[in-house]
Design a protein around this nucleic acid. Structure first.
Lengths: 193, 193
DNA sequence: ATTGTTCTGTACCGGTCGGTAAAAATTTAT
DNA sequence: ATAAATTTTTACCGACCGGTACAGAACAAT
């Protein structure tokens, strides 16, 4: 078995390169020439390996999501709402500050607004953001009595934390430094319930 | 004077229509056919009146910015930091909730990430966001002694408020309802210094 | 009515988009 | 050596992109 000419590139490495192009450019802003050049392969190899641009993007998003998803789960396991929020917000700022990565968050800037042909991509990303938010909502709903100030709906609080995380991603995409991001996170946490 | 065939459309109305297309689609996602169709004119009329797509976008952004800019100034005139933040955050949530408008914020989703040909557009929007943030920084720096909890840098606090406003815009673009937006704003303000 | 001027409508430009057909190249199996 | 399988390479496809040339239509001035 395994007959035929062997491919002379590593699909994992190629996907990683594509991921970083999508990260900087967004789905629509990343052209096939730019993608394949970064991947170090030509177009038919990309199509044979990944299907098409849309599937390549989804695989890139899946790969991108692995780490944040795992980190989210880790955060949600913290014992108190306060600590969950601390880990989520500070961790987000730290990750967004990492100088090795493109600025911002792929799930956000991959397709925040886009042409009608890419609407399905946009909706997919919206759903991924919603799923993350839902997980936080669920965790906060299980808070022990007295952990939250009364009068605060756990869903509102979860959405508030989500909002800060997304705001931080916008700040990062706009060129905020790591110091600034951490400063924002500190302010947010200093005044957290 | 004013000789020649009169144009049979209102440039202000046409710009308004284009604005709303850019708002939903972003700069790159808005195609000339979609723009001109919404504007009710054909391409040469658009070019004669507005220059080209990039200038049309900038004029749309200028128009879009008028109201938020005026509102920002109004907010900054509030007597205390606390009130400034209240007006900014609650006002942002209210405006984002307005059902007559497309979801989200043009200055943000016009070009959060984009192809290299549109980098100048992206940078222009980044600069506009920075300018807004700078104005809040300046206002907070003039806070009276004791107005801010000690240990809180007014710049960090201003960036925090900006972050919430941008996070709210992301939430709106993702389909959050007006109730949800206001709930987030309430949580943010309940725990504000 | 003719002329000059400005706008509208159509039809087109070169360039790029995402996607693919087909041949050359490189491997394993016989 | 030859054949079968798979990848790479080149060259191309139709569609759409932003932008424009040009002719015809609608006005004011003469």
């Amino acid at each position: 078995m395994a007959v035929g000419r062997p491919r002379n590139f590593d699909p994992e490495k190629a996907l990683e390169k594509a991921l970083r192009v999508f990260w900087r450019r967004g789905y629509e802003g990343a052209s096939l020439p730019e993608l394949t050049k970064a991947m170090g392969i030509n177009r038919p190899s990309m199509y044979a390996t990944f299907g098409n641009k849309e599937q390549l993007f989804k695989k890139a998003v899946d790969r991108y999501s692995e780490e944040p998803t795992a980190y989210l789960a880790e955060c949600l396991a913290a014992p108190t709402v306060r600590e969950v929020a601390e880990w989520l917000i500070r961790g987000t700022a730290e990750r967004l500050a990492c100088p090795k990565n493109p600025r911002g968050c792929l799930i956000l800037q991959g397709a925040l607004a886009c042409g009608k042909e890419s609407e399905s991509i946009r909706r997919d990303l919206v759903a991924r953001r919603a799923e993350q938010e839902r997980a936080i909502c669920e965790r906060f709903a299980q808070a022990k009595a007295g952990e939250l100030p009364k009068g605060v709906d756990p869903n509102d609080l979860a959405r508030y934390v989500s909002t800060i995380m997304q705001g931080l991603a916008v700040q990062a995409a706009s060129g905020a430094t790591g110091e600034e991001l951490l400063g924002i996170a500190d302010v947010a946490l200093r005044h957290f319930p």
